[in-house]
Design a protein around this nucleic acid. Structure first.
Lengths: 228, 228
DNA sequence: TGAAACAAGTCCTCAGACAACCTGAGAGGT
DNA sequence: ACCTCTCAGGTTGTCTGAGGACTTGTTTCA
């Protein structure tokens, strides 16, 4: 698993998260008036417009409400936005990292729990992926994600399956744009297929660590490419 | 199309709703690049910072995503369904299993990425947990979850932190009822504390595998109790 | 043909200015 | 003593101009 700090993010997002933590953490109870924009700006070391955008994001999230002339007030200390929405605006590398940790463990479980039907679905998805490798990017990405979804489903945990379903659309959209850049196909089409094939067969034959290892290597490689 | 010359509501909100209607109405399909800030500003008859705040609100809502240098893109044209609600309906053992796989990996990452501040927070949470072990069940569960949340936060991946936050309330509610049944305290109060303490110290000193192992053992034990 | 350099367009951030508005304190009248 | 009015200070709302950082497509050159 490649490491390294994960975030040279825009200042507005840093400011937003900083303020969000203060509110969610309970440092500023409901009804509290936040420090003024200028005060926050100097305190955070950013400009006033940056603070304004951060406050605007928190207002949209339903955490604060600003009243002209009066100030900005905390109106809720609990997150209420959908997780999927937050996923969509997160950095791809962060999403991918979590996806990888989920899926590697899922493969390990799948090796123990997969039914014959699961195996059949995976094999079919594998064939579809091979077929789609000649098609356009979108079709290939769809087929790839379908295979991975089948693997996750074989872990036989509905929560896990649901969770992966939250990730899928975000991954799909991002990967369609990146499939060439990441050399998921062009570089060495055979390895990708070979890796996926041996992954499926490892799961089918119950070799948990083998499956986890293959998938970890595959996903980690893409993740490092994603970070460059 | 200049916005109202009168000002019934702040201009930013008017602009936000105007753009939101365009997106939800389907005029701008997923993938569309919005006009530039200056173009939108003149088209809406407002200033650039007003447009920026409106876009920031839509980004927080998960409808658009801005990429520096490239533009602002539509990433969703529909409001999302709630993953948290599905979590609440799922079986506890399934939720707990996914939680375990996430957190074990999180501990591994945390050992590499934790800052000094993270360590301080974890140590404080550890002390709070020890203190709460004498209190009532709810307080103890809260303290325990707070410690685990601190560990996840130390992995420095916002997606992961958000995801754990989705799990936290579900876990809390269930564990409060089960804390005695599961013998999380009564059976052997010392081991739980010792395990958590050594977990934190392993993360603090960067021993990733050690940390992952401790946490895996701890969570797996509870999970097996949960299944009986 | 392929890679490197360039240029235009875009978002990101800051600083300053002014307007619109709210709040609390004080003056003045009842 | 109480109420009302006025006003000063502080706050958010908005606009503008400037420069930096990044992406993308084109052009140039080997």
């Amino acid at each position: 698993m490649p490491l390294g700090s994960l975030r040279p993010s825009p200042l507005v997002e840093q400011a937003t998260e900083h303020l969000r933590e203060q509110i969610l953490g309970g440092q500023w109870p409901v009804g509290t008036r936040l420090p003024g924009e200028t005060a926050l700006a100097t305190s955070l070391g950013v400009g006033r417009s940056t603070v304004r955008e951060a406050v605007r994001a928190l207002a949209e999230a339903g955490l604060v409400k600003s009243r002209q002339g009066a100030g900005v007030f905390v109106i809720s200390t609990e997150p209420q936005q959908d997780f999927g929405a937050r996923l969509r605006r997160a950095a791809l590398a962060e999403v991918y990292e979590v996806r990888a940790m989920l899926e590697v463990q899922a493969a390990r479980l799948a090796a123990h729990r997969r039914t014959d039907e699961d195996v059949a679905v995976m094999v079919a998805a594998l064939a579809a992926r091979r077929l789609a490798s000649g098609g356009d990017d979108a079709a290939f990405v769809d087929a790839d994600i379908a295979l991975h979804a089948a693997i996750v489903a074989a872990a036989r945990n509905p929560v896990l399956t649901d969770l992966f379903a939250e990730f899928a659309p975000v991954l799909r959209e991002a990967l369609v744009d990146l499939v060439d850049l990441l050399a998921l196909r062009a570089a060495d089409p055979a390895t990708g297929e070979a890796a996926h094939a041996s992954l499926v067969s490892a799961i089918a034959s119950g070799e948990a660590e083998e499956a986890a290892g293959i998938l970890d290597a595959e996903l980690s490689a893409t993740l490092t490419r994603l970070r460059t």
